[in-house]
Structures are given as C-alpha cells and as structure tokens.
C-alpha cells in the first residue's frame, strides 16, 4: 500500500521492518510499532492516512499473534533489550569498519539502520543521553561517509 505523503518520515522505519521480516521479526515488529505511533501523531485524520494506519495496525496485530511465543513481543521490557542490543551491534560493526578505514555501502547502511533503531527505542520511553548521542553520531557518519564516497573523497 502506498505511503501517504504526510507519513513520509516513517518510510525508512517501515523499510527497515520489511528488511527484517525474516531475519529478525522482533525488529520488524517494533519498527512497525514505532511507525504506527509516529504515524498517528503525524496524521490519523485524513482518510488516506487513516486507511494506511488501519492496515498497519492489522499487520501489527497479526504479527503479535504469530510471535506470541517470543518474550521479546509479549514483554516489552525484553523487547526493549532486544532492540537496544541489535542497534548497538549494528553501530559497533559500522564503527569498527570506520576506525579500520574500511568504507563501503554496507557500513553506511549499518550506521543508518542503527540510527533508525535508536528512534524505535523511543516506543519504550525516553531515550538515554547515551542513545541520543549514538543516534546523532550514527546518522551524521552515514551521511558524511555516503557523501565522501559519492564525491570520490576519502573520509577522515
């Protein structure tokens, strides 16, 4: 289903959900939950957004049933730890590549995905100062390295 333009800012979180559907359904579930909550704040009044959000809610309810055996879904505190560990793992992989001078598409994507997952952590409550800093750094690094590679420059 096409994403209404009013909900454009959740498109990357929804794409991350799609990419993790098989690899890590818990990540997919919480990315969609974040998109749902954010989408409702952005616009849940216009018919096109309501329609989109109702579909997304249907999908979340189905996923919750299918994943009911997973404690990361039935207990949000476990889910919180799962998403935080995953985000930090992504961040550390990209950071390690960065510090070793290995710049490539995969590490840019890891930095960016980590930053999106730090956004997702906000469904569990206010982000810690450390996670806010990690998110800022990961997003900046992803943009910076992407631009360097695009312009044929070596990142510093």
């Amino acid at each position: 289903m096409a994403l209404p333009p009013q909900l454009k800012s959740i498109q990357h979180h929804l794409r991350t959900a799609q990419e993790h559907e098989k690899r890590d359904p818990v990540v997919a579930y919480y990315c969609r939950l974040y998109a749902m909550q954010t989408g409702m704040k952005l616009d849940s009044k216009t018919p096109e957004c309501r329609k989109f959000l109702v579909k997304l809610m249907d999908q979340l309810e189905t996923m919750k049933k299918e994943l009911s055996d997973s404690e990361s879904i039935s207990q949000e505190i476990v889910g919180n730890a799962h998403i935080e560990n995953y985000a930090i793992k992504m961040f550390l992989y990209a950071d390690n590549e960065d510090r070793s001078g290995r710049f490539h598409k995969n590490m840019i994507k890891s930095f960016y995905t980590a930053s999106l997952l730090f956004d997702v952590l906000s469904v569990f409550g206010e982000l810690s100062e450390e996670n806010i800093q990690h998110r800022k750094y990961a997003r900046w690094k992803a943009t910076y390295i992407h631009n360097c590679l695009k312009n044929g420059e070596t990142p510093q």
Binding site: L33, M36, Q37, M40, S44, K45, R50, L53, V54, M57, L60, E61, K64, E76
Partner: peptide, 27 residues
C-alpha cells in the same frame, strides 16, 4: 455534514488508539 464527518473521524481515531493500547497491553 461537517460535524458528522468530524465525529466519524474522531471515533475511528479513538478506535485506533484503543487498538494500539490493547496491542501494548495498556488496557
């Protein structure tokens, strides 16, 4: 019709909020 439209919209919005709360075991 404007107010009917508005109340339909807010009822649907409410339903969505309720479903979200239920999904998160907050009811």
């Amino acid at each position: 019709t404007g107010s009917v439209g508005t109340s339909v919209a807010s009822a649907e919005q409410d339903e969505l909020s309720q479903r979200l709360a239920k999904l998160r075991d907050q009811v």
